[in-house]
């Protein structure tokens, strides 16, 4: 202790030291290793522009959800409802666009109708987020239970809206722009949207007061309360944000699949949680990064893609993805434990 206390006050560690101790550094190495291995095995089919383009497209929707999930998990909470909220947002958006179109056929709807659809999707997602937030923060019901409830409820309401079936028509203009359009001919718009959202909310988490309070509440809610932070209000806003992002993701999914995929997205919540946790965010709250989440979301995606391309049997894929998930988190915990023992 004396030697430590003898050091000059308030020194910053070197960039290298901070990098090596960062959770994201090691998990990034895992991702890099996976890419290298698959590229070595199947250079002509894995290491292609097309393949990575598809990889990014297919991960875009999940990434947007996982960004919201990162905030919730940093507060020490969880949101199981994201997949259902996504479907709800897509459904109410698609229904709105059909209602606004002649003959309930939204195939040829223009930008006015599509914009209305976007607004409705975001509002719908945010509404469920707000419900989650109020129940968690004000009514003090554990988030696991609240979001388990809204997981069912949101899907139920979505099913009611169209008698439990997918909507028939989705605007072609939406499909060709957000769903499959590209920027500069190469960068898919879906990916652009996901990247912009990730960067914005990465900055919000790591540079703003909103982000700082998110960490503080997850780290010690009592301390945050005593420091004068409106914990109830902030928690509500965090769940609202997650719902908002699930709403955007719902609209993206609608554009991409041209379907409300009402029986799909059942494991989005678990996939998002897995990605967030693999990226080094602590389920106990207080710790986490958006960069980690990005890497964490891509690890299972790259694994799946790689296995498919090199032709590993589907049963083995399930086993391997599960094993890598658990191993990555175990490895991270071991490393952290040894770090805390010093």
């Amino acid at each position: 202790m004396t030697t430590l206390d003898g050091l000059p006050t308030a020194e910053r560690r070197s960039l290298g030291a901070r990098l090596l101790s960062a959770n994201t550094f090691w998990i990034a190495l895992v991702l890099l290793a996976l890419i290298v291995v698959f590229s070595a095995i199947a250079p002509e089919s894995f290491l292609t522009f097309f393949n990575f383009q598809q990889l990014f497209i297919e991960t875009a929707v999940l990434l947007v959800i996982a960004v919201g999930m990162t905030f919730v998990i940093i507060t020490g909470g969880i949101d199981l409802s994201v997949g259902s909220v996504l479907i709800f947002a897509g459904m109410i958006s698609a229904k709105t666009m059909e209602w606004m179109s002649p003959g309930q056929d939204a195939s040829n709807a223009g930008w006015g109708v599509i914009t209305a659809g976007l607004v409705v999707a975001i509002a719908g997602g945010s509404l469920w987020g707000l419900i989650n937030g109020l129940l968690v923060a004000r009514a003090n019901i554990p988030p696991l239970i609240v979001t388990l409830g809204t997981l069912g409820a949101a899907l139920g309401v979505a099913s009611l809206l169209n008698d439990g079936t997918n909507v028939r028509t989705v605007p072609l203009e939406l499909r060709d722009s957000l769903g499959f359009g590209t920027l500069e001919g190469n960068i898919p718009n879906l990916v652009v949207v996901a990247v912009v959202i990730t960067v914005i909310f990465g900055l919000v988490l790591h540079t703003t007061r909103f982000g700082r309070y998110t960490f503080a509440i997850g780290s010690n809610p009592e301390a945050a309360r005593r420091a004068g932070i409106g914990v109830t209000r902030h928690l509500t806003n965090v769940y609202l944000l997650t719902g908002f992002l699930a709403g955007i993701a719902g609209f993206m999914s609608l554009a991409y699949f041209q379907s409300t995929t009402i029986s799909g997205h059942t494991t989005d919540n678990l996939n998002a949680i897995a990605g967030v946790v693999m990226g080094g965010t602590s389920l106990f709250g207080g710790i986490g990064t958006i960069l980690g989440t990005v890497i964490g979301v891509f690890i299972p995606a790259v694994l799946q893609k790689g296995f498919n391309i090199i032709g590993v049997q589907p049963y083995w894929q399930m086993i391997a993805v599960g094993a890598v998930l658990v191993a990555a988190v175990w490895f991270d915990q071991q490393r952290r434990r040894s770090q805390n023992k010093r």
């Binding site: 007061r209 503080a216 010690n220 301390a223 207080g286």
Partner: peptide
């Protein structure tokens, strides 16, 4: 009443950033 996952400066300014 400190937030253990935040650094000393963040704790010092907690609520008064």
């Amino acid at each position: 009443a400190v937030a253990p996952d935040l650094d000393p400066a963040a704790n010092l300014f907690l609520g008064r950033e």
